[in-house]
């Protein structure tokens, strides 16, 4: 919120009460960025970096890789910005791009080296959960990192991000039934991990 407000009001942080105002401010930033204004694009980055990084972190289960992926997402966003018509929020436009970058990188790395292991502990970057942990001693982030990548992707998108199977199927180029099967697999593995 602060980034957009500052962008429009010259650094003076004034709350914008109306969603329409925020959208209008965002549209102006997008238009400026489309015209080559790197400062405007940085504002868009600052506004969205934490969500993009969180999604990359969960999909890759690798903190160092998530940093690279986040950078790649915004470089590609810059290249594709001309195709953004402003019909949705910038974050909505960025979302499938983030998923695509994170998963395509995963696939290309898997092709290059089948022995990939996470070198950083993604759980160390997680802020303390807003609610008390339902079961002491269980680290969901670590358990998610051990899931097969396809199952992890569907679990993250469905149970963490709240996407529907139809949305996931469209983003991952899967049949909705495959998405459901992957979720079933992920949930089963996670509840086994919870009991171990």
């Amino acid at each position: 919120m602060g980034g957009l407000a500052e962008a429009v009001l010259g650094g003076t942080l004034i709350p914008m009460r109306e969603t329409e105002d925020r959208r209008a401010a965002e549209r102006r930033l997008v238009q400026d960025a489309q015209n080559g204004d790197l400062l405007a694009f940085e504002r868009l980055y600052r506004e969205n970096e934490r969500k993009v990084f969180a999604l990359c972190l969960r999909l890759s289960a690798d903190a160092a890789l998530a940093e690279e992926l986040t950078q790649e997402v915004f470089v590609r966003a810059w290249r594709k910005l001309g195709g953004f018509r402003g019909e949705s929020a910038f974050s909505s436009w960025l979302y499938p791009l983030t998923v695509n970058v994170a998963l395509s990188e995963r696939r290309s790395r898997r092709r290059r080296d089948a022995r990939i292991v996470a070198t950083d502990d993604p759980a160390s970057l997680e802020p303390a959960p807003a609610t008390p942990r339902p079961e002491a001693g269980f680290d969901l982030q670590k358990a998610m990192a051990a899931l097969p990548p396809g199952a992890r992707a569907v679990f993250v998108l469905h149970d963490v991000e709240g996407r529907t199977h139809d949305e996931i199927a469209a983003m991952l180029d899967l049949a909705p039934g495959t998405s459901k099967a992957q979720l079933f697999r992920a949930r089963r593995l996670l509840r086994e991990a919870l009991g171990s």
Partner: peptide, 15 residues
Amino acid sequence: QVLAHAAALPRSVTP
């Protein structure tokens, strides 16, 4: 429990 853990994960993480 797993779903409660997932729902409790923050949607934003600072790099």
